[in-house]
Amino acid sequence: MSRTPTARLFHTDSGTELVLDRTFRAPIEDVWASVTEPERTARWFGPWKGDAGPGQMVKLQLAFEEKQPWCDLRIESCSAPRQLEVSMKDEVGNWRLELALSEKDGVTTLQLTHHLESVEGIGEIGPGWEYYLDMLVAAREGTPRPEFSEFYPEMKPYFDGLR
């Protein structure tokens, strides 16, 4: 199956932002639960454990990555059910992510913004976020999970072209 990338790249005064959206015919509270409750995040990204709250650290397992590593994830801010900002570090670098949710007429839009330190590696990062958001769609709809090979390396030229 061929997938079409949806991400956009914005250059701002404070850096570069990779932005992706998905829409769901569901109340905002239900979509929020899909991205914040550990048993639901386990279905598409990975489970987490710990005391969640602004300024707190939780342990997140990257369940669909090689070796399924656990990492520390800091909750920078949270305004349920509309906004969540998190950060983490790994061998690739610093990750600053923001989820914004909005609902209109029974349709909830989820916007993921990855605040990038540089566009280095965008050809790998972008397809990864497309994959994970489509994993979220599949988890919510009860459809088969997509294969990462449907996203990478096929989408790499698109993301490299955004630079």
Rank of each mutant, 00 (worst) to 15 (best):
97 L>G: 15
120 E>D: 13
130 E>F: 06
76 E>I: 09
99 L>I: 13
26 A>R: 11
11 H>Y: 12
33 A>Q: 05
66 E>D: 12
60 L>N: 04
46 G>W: 07
87 S>R: 13
66 E>N: 13
20 L>P: 02
57 M>D: 15
124 E>H: 08
39 E>I: 02
61 Q>L: 06
23 T>V: 04
16 T>M: 09
70 W>D: 15
148 F>C: 02
105 D>Y: 08
89 K>H: 14
23 T>P: 03
30 D>F: 00
94 N>V: 13
14 S>W: 09
136 L>S: 09
52 A>E: 14
65 E>M: 13
150 E>R: 00
4 T>Q: 07
22 R>W: 02
108 T>F: 12
88 M>E: 10
44 W>M: 04
77 S>K: 03
75 I>W: 01
3 R>W: 01
25 R>V: 12
12 T>M: 14
85 E>Q: 12
68 Q>S: 14
126 G>Q: 07
122 I>F: 03
32 W>A: 09
87 S>F: 10
47 P>D: 11
87 S>M: 12
76 E>M: 09
33 A>N: 06
148 F>P: 05
118 S>E: 06
122 I>W: 03
29 E>L: 11
137 V>C: 13
156 K>N: 04
103 E>L: 06
155 M>V: 00
151 F>Y: 15
111 Q>V: 10
119 V>C: 12
102 S>G: 07
7 A>G: 14
49 K>Y: 11
152 Y>S: 14
25 R>F: 07
1 M>V: 02
113 T>Q: 10
39 E>G: 07
108 T>E: 10
85 E>V: 13
21 D>M: 06
9 L>F: 08
145 R>Y: 11
37 E>H: 06
29 E>F: 11
86 V>N: 10
157 P>I: 04
79 S>P: 01
128 G>I: 01
84 L>I: 03
62 L>R: 09
22 R>G: 04
123 G>D: 11
122 I>N: 05
139 A>N: 06
128 G>S: 09
132 Y>T: 00
55 G>Y: 15
61 Q>M: 15
25 R>Q: 04
104 K>E: 10
30 D>P: 00
90 D>F: 13
78 C>N: 11
5 P>I: 06
105 D>T: 08
12 T>E: 15
36 T>I: 05
82 R>T: 02
63 A>G: 12
136 L>F: 07
99 L>E: 05
21 D>P: 01
2 S>E: 10
2 S>K: 08
80 A>P: 12
138 A>H: 02
160 D>Q: 09
137 V>G: 10
130 E>P: 08
49 K>A: 13
156 K>H: 02
17 E>I: 08
131 Y>V: 00
135 M>Y: 07
130 E>R: 06
1 M>T: 03
17 E>Q: 13
112 L>T: 00
100 A>N: 05
137 V>P: 09
154 E>Y: 00
134 D>A: 06
21 D>G: 06
82 R>F: 01
96 R>S: 15
45 F>C: 07
145 R>P: 08
36 T>D: 09
76 E>H: 01
110 L>N: 07
40 R>H: 08
112 L>Y: 04
45 F>H: 09
107 V>Y: 05
